[in-house]
Amino acid sequence: MSPATVTTARTGNGISPQLQFGETVTHIKRGQQGIVLDIKNLNLWYGAAQALHDVSLSVEQGMVTSLIGPSGCGKSTLLRCINRMNDLVDNLKITGAISLHGEDIYAKAADVIALRKRMGMVFQKPNPFPMSIFENVVYPLRIDGVRDKTVLQETCERALQGAALWNEVKDRLDQNALGMSGGQQQRLCIARAIAADPEVLLMDEPCSALDPIATAKVEELIHQLSGTYTIVIVTHNMQQAARVSDNTAFMYLGRLIEYGDTEVMFQSPLAERTQDYITGRFG
């Protein structure tokens, strides 16, 4: 069942046409700090339909990893497996393992809530809560029962500055967050995600609902956050993946086709399908 994983040297410069469908080419850039997330042989079924086939990949700490691929290839599903957001879906079946710093998050004894507290997530559509900007940012602390005003205010400022939003909203923290523009709302969601200092930041097409200027701001932000946080980002936009990420994973029809250094992926991918996709031949 386990497919052959072909690990090629980083400097690999040609397409390997002999690859079987389902085999993964891996040539990732390694970080200094080791692996944060390790996904092994993950299979996932929505009812009878299999959405992920034997996906294995590891995420390097402090790096930006992007997941690309055509619509319906399973990249969002994979992302949502990482913080067990898929638990909400009925009729879901998962095999394989995901470990965060070596702990299996799908173990029976795993505490989903504690797990999610270690990860932040930013969604496709900005989803601020119908509360003030301040309350939105400190929401993760509120649910942990933090009442200390100084702590809350400091966290709020730090998170908003981290999300490059502080200067725009510092005078109207008590206003309803729903009155902000879409780009601001998305950065607010990023601020909310980093307020509780997560180990991993998961982003599910964070810019797809934003205009180009807001997109540029969020991308700039991702740049700033990389190094401090480990980021996994799903994107539809290949230029974006090329701009922001260190490693890129290309998925197709629920399979991980190629996972490697972003530069190599976009200049001389090793798998034919990757080549086809990034040159726009399909997808």
Binding site: M85, R118, I143, C189
Partner: peptide
């Protein structure tokens, strides 16, 4: 109540009850 709101709250590490009390019910 939009699913995205519940997910936003759950992703922050809120329990189901906290999500219901803080986000779903007010909404």
């Amino acid at each position: 109540v939009p699913r995205s709101m519940r997910e936003g709250s759950l992703a922050c590490g809120a329990s189901k009850w906290q999500t219901i009390r803080n986000i779903v019910l007010p909404r």
